Simulated scan of single mutants.
Amino acid sequence: MRSGFRWRQGAGFASGHGAQGKRIAWPRTFAVKRSGPLRSEHLRFIHEEPRGGVLHCFVLDCSSSMMAGERLALAKGILLALFERARAGRCEVALVCFGGNRADVRFGPAVPRWWSERWIAPVGGGGGTPFQSGIDTAGDLLMTAARRKPVQQRWLWVLSDGRSSDAPSRPVAADQAIFVDFEQEHVSIGRCADLARKWEAQLFDAREVAGIAPS
């Protein structure tokens, strides 16, 4: 499930193998295919921005395990980079943080501004991992957004090391789901990978995603 990716303006991450639900650009596809048989790697797509806009809801694990190896610091750096791309594309974002015994909405939904670092920097970590509560909070936010803007495309991002026994279901209002996995232990429990499979979500390694930092 891990693959190369790029940030596509206005529509989030796209796998290096194409984009689900996008129309095929047949002239460009045939130009690549030439006279050989058509294969999946030949496909080229028409990248269309959703007419109702995009909401990216980020769920950040702030539990004590994310403090090891500066994982939380890496997560906050990734968030700043993603928020900058969302801002450039006029996408809305929301941030849900969970840790200790609670989960709460820290931002949005709104288009992020240049001062994002001022309120992301103070986000701290520690305590337990109320993963279920974090996903439930995000699910409620996405459902409210769906009622407010029915045609808006809703992306759910989960930034976590997966060190939790919770196994939440995918929120029904999430059109797309992405796990950014911060697990670094030699003996991996693979919880993010397991949930990504169950959710039919994309899965990326945090160190891979860190390469999107603004130039």
Rank of each mutant, 00 (worst) to 15 (best):
G128S: 04
H47G: 10
A146M: 10
P171T: 03
R147G: 10
F45L: 04
C192D: 07
P122N: 12
L195C: 11
V151G: 10
F131D: 02
D166T: 12
V93N: 13
V180K: 07
R90A: 10
I178G: 05
K33F: 07
Q202L: 11
W7R: 14
E208K: 13
M67I: 12
Q184H: 15
A177E: 10
P122S: 12
K76P: 06
E49A: 00
V158G: 01
E49W: 01
G36S: 14
V172H: 04
A145L: 04
A173K: 03
G77V: 00
R163D: 00
G162L: 00
S165A: 11
A196Q: 09
G125T: 09
S164C: 07
D194K: 14
H56A: 11
R2Q: 03
A31C: 00
P168N: 08
L159N: 01
Q153S: 07
F98S: 00
F204A: 05
E84H: 14
A201N: 13
F204V: 07
P214F: 15
G53R: 08
P112L: 15
V180Y: 09
C62H: 05
H47E: 14
G125D: 12
A173T: 04
R102G: 05
L55H: 11
A75T: 13
R2D: 02
V151E: 11
S215E: 00
H47S: 12
M67P: 01
G4R: 14
A73R: 01
A193N: 09
P37V: 08
D161C: 04
E41D: 08
E70Y: 03
G211S: 07
G162S: 02
A146I: 09
A25V: 04
R197L: 10
G12F: 13
F45K: 11
D136L: 06
W114I: 14
H186Q: 11
A110M: 03
F182R: 00
M143Q: 13
E41P: 01
R207N: 08
L80T: 05
A121P: 00
E48H: 04
A167C: 04
L38D: 03
L82Q: 11
S188F: 05
K33C: 05
G211I: 06
A94P: 14
I24Q: 07
E92I: 01
W199T: 08
C57F: 14
R44V: 12
R6L: 13
H47L: 10
V187F: 14
M1V: 08
G124S: 15
A201P: 13
V123K: 02
S215W: 04
L72V: 02
G134W: 06
A86N: 09
A167K: 09
A121W: 03
G128K: 08
G4E: 13
R147T: 10
M1Q: 07
S15G: 13
W199S: 06
I120S: 14
S116D: 12
G125A: 14
F131Q: 02
R148I: 03
F204D: 06
V158N: 01
R191M: 09
L142Y: 06
R23C: 11
L142A: 00
S160L: 02
E49S: 03
H42E: 07
A206D: 02
W115I: 06
W7E: 10
R154V: 06
Q202W: 05
G12I: 12
F30T: 12
H186A: 15
A94D: 14
M67C: 13
I135V: 15
M66F: 01
Q202G: 12
A88F: 15
G139W: 01
G128W: 02
S15F: 05
L60M: 10
